[in-house]
């Protein structure tokens, strides 16, 4: 794979949703968007303008939005519910369980404002449990792309597969990592580096941090394997097992350290009975109003902490 060197351009991955859903809507009239009032913020405005007959806005009523999407799906539509991650995973959690996952309907839940990215909105709006909740539901696929292009590709893949998918995007701009020709497969980790000393498994907006940490570690003679685990369910178990020979694994995520990527990887490692793991993520505490980068810092979701964890594992 080719990592774009000019990693200066930044885009929020919610913009990837706004752009890709228009492309999907053009080619398939069964693609619907179910907005829950915050369409502008979730970037569905272009879709609304072009395809009003494929758009529904239920107002501030998440539970109903999920149910309507399920009803649409029974008729062959492919609805994308669009809202913020904290509401899309929690306010409508039971509706997703009962009316989407239980009957295994073809509904996609596309959520902006994932993780700590809605920094200044405060802890009420930061989604730190969402992927863990969604991961608990049978039939659900759970995805967070690392940048604009990968997110677009994964949205397209989600639309092409049958079944419920939870997609999580950033509110804030994050660096472009991949070029637009890169391909992605749901449930298949993207290897960004191969190495022998340390394996770093990251997802979403933390992949950029993992790339930087890996570069600095390499400069100090540490050989790093780096995976972008954009799909935490179904987890690419083989890719994790391939890290077991290295034996020193670090997970990095913008999510609570409980039930997210770190937990999913831990399950594989524990069952294999070998390897050491260090998990980097939100420290099981609610956020507060602060710049996004500050919130990452107070939770240790930083390049420096990845390097520190790597060095600690190497000296064990």
């Amino acid at each position: 794979m080719s990592v774009t060197k000019k990693a200066v351009e930044k885009k929020a991955t919610r913009a990837a949703f706004g752009d890709e859903i228009v492309r999907l809507g053009e080619s398939n009239k069964d693609i619907y968007v179910v907005d829950i009032d915050i369409g502008k913020s979730c970037k569905t405005d272009k879709f609304i303008e072009k395809f009003p007959m494929q758009h529904i806005n239920v107002g501030i009523a998440e539970q109903n939005g999920a149910g309507i999407a399920a009803g649409l799906a029974t008729t062959g539509k492919i609805p994308f519910i669009s809202t913020y991650a904290v509401f899309g995973s929690l306010r409508m959690a039971e509706q997703i369980r009962q009316e989407v996952c239980y009957p295994n309907l073809n509904v996609k839940i596309a959520c902006s404002h994932g993780g700590l990215t809605p920094g200044n909105d405060g802890g009420s709006h930061q989604a730190i449990e969402d992927m863990g909740v969604m991961r608990s539901f049978p039939n659900m696929t759970v995805i967070m792309g690392a940048d604009y292009h990968s997110t677009r590709k994964l949205i397209a893949e989600a639309a092409a597969m049958y079944g419920p998918v939870y997609l999580r995007f950033t509110r804030d701009a994050v660096p472009m990592i991949y070029d637009e020709n890169e391909t992605f497969e749901i449930g298949k980790a993207k290897q960004l580096r191969d190495g022998a000393d340390i394996a770093i498994i990251a997802n979403g907006d933390t992949v950029r941090l993992a790339i930087e940490a890996a570069e600095q570690l390499e400069q100090n003679g540490v050989s790093v394997k780096l995976l972008d685990m954009h799909t935490i369910k179904p987890l690419d178990v083989d890719a994790v097992k391939d890290c077991l020979d290295i034996g020193r694994i670090i997970t990095v995520e913008d999510h609570n350290i409980l039930n997210g990527l770190g937990s999913a990887v831990a399950e594989v490692i524990a069952e294999a009975g070998k390897g050491q793991l260090a998990r980097i993520g939100v420290q099981d505490r609610f956020g507060e109003s602060a710049p996004y980068e500050k919130l990452l810092e107070i939770n240790g979701i930083t390049v420096e902490n990845i390097i520190a964890k790597a060095n600690k594992l190497l000296t064990n």
């Binding site: 149910g67 399920a70 009803g71 649409l72 009316e99």
Partner: peptide, 10 residues
């Protein structure tokens, strides 16, 4: 009822 609404919209 929400599901019924979705079916009716379709």
């Amino acid at each position: 009822l929400s599901c019924a609404v979705g079916m009716a919209i379709a």
